[in-house]
């Protein structure tokens, strides 16, 4: 029975997860063609070995050379990583105080607070991003509010800039940052802080010497959980970002749907994956280490 339980999902994932990657890899070394499907060569078994040989002979790394030479792609990768890194830092700065406040709140409030953090996560991602368009637009609520306060006299251009992208990412990914940090802070024994103060720490010193080291596993997990998916983010830059917001998810989408250049889109995907493998492996290691420590 265990064999069956392994085999069915295993085969499913092989066919619908691993094989597709092989196809992406293969198409990334093919050439663009105006045909259906729009790439060449295609494997033709009717010619036997000659066909297979011809197929492999026609593959090359031209698309990768193209990506390396075209500034647009380099910049898109770099700016994706940069935007993701800045947004992760901002999410941490917003998320940590919230998680900290939640962990210090009275026990009986905590389930409700947790609920309030998780609730938006169940609501559509798209709707949550959409909600910010009306707020950040030139005639939007934020500008109206700031002008009413008298802080500014002319509307600020926020929508269609990187700032709007940062806000969108912080907003949508905040639960991923708060939850792991809260989880590590919540486990903390409150008497540890009292012990630290008893042993001569000031409140601030106790925070840095006790709370922060204990929260660190949660902080690291939260940062990975925000950073990794953000690098390939598509919805937020395309709805909130401007024409100069370069993110690789958007480039891939346009390459595929607008230019219909599948080989280049595949090459873009392969490189994106290679870039993400490093943080993914680091994250896995971190999680395994934490699990072992917990056990």
């Amino acid at each position: 029975m265990l064999r069956v339980f392994t085999a069915i999902p295993y085969v499913w994932l092989l066919v619908l997860f691993l094989v597709p990657f092989a196809i992406v890899a293969k198409i990334s070394v093919s050439d663009y063609a105006i045909s259906i499907p729009p790439y060449t060569p295609t494997l033709d078994f009717s010619e036997g070995w000659a066909g297979v040989n011809a197929f492999f002979a026609a593959l090359d790394f031209e698309n990768f050379t193209f990506l390396a030479e075209d500034e647009l792609y380099w910049k898109a990768y770099l700016s994706s990583v940069q935007i993701a890194a800045i947004a992760t830092f901002l999410t941490l700065s917003v998320g940590f105080p919230i998680a900290y406040g939640m962990a210090r709140a009275p026990r009986e409030w905590q389930p409700a607070l947790l609920m309030l953090v998780i609730l938006p996560f169940w609501t559509s991602f798209l709707i949550r991003v959409y909600a910010w368009i009306g707020i950040l637009a030139n005639e939007g609520f934020l500008n109206q509010f700031l002008m009413w306060l008298g802080v500014i006299s002319e509307p600020l251009q926020i929508l269609n800039t990187n700032w709007a992208v940062y806000i969108g990412i912080v907003y949508t990914y905040l639960p991923f940052m708060i939850l792991p940090i809260y989880a590590s802070l919540e486990r903390m024994d409150p008497s540890l802080l009292e012990a630290a103060e008893d042993l001569g720490c000031s409140r601030t010193a106790a925070f840095w010497h006790v709370t922060w080291p204990l929260a660190r596993p949660g902080v690291i997990a939260g940062c990975f959980l925000v950073f990794i998916p953000t690098v390939g983010e598509f919805v937020i830059p395309s709805l909130l970002g401007g024409s100069d917001t370069l993110m690789i998810g958007k480039v891939l989408w346009e390459e595929f749907f607008n230019n219909r250049d599948w080989p280049v889109a595949s090459a873009v995907a392969i490189i994106l994956l290679l870039i993400l493998i490093i943080p993914i492996v680091l994250f896995q290691r971190h999680e395994t280490k934490e699990r072992e420590r917990g056990a």
Binding site: T6, Y10, G232, G249, L252, F256, W262, I280, F283
Partner: peptide, 23 residues
């Protein structure tokens, strides 16, 4: 097997979508 179970969790959606379409 365990790699294939965990990978889709962190895979950018654009890549998953593209690869499945090509399949």
């Amino acid at each position: 097997f365990s790699g294939m179970i965990y990978a889709p969790l962190v895979m950018p959606e654009v890549i998953t979508g593209l690869s499945l379409l090509l399949l």
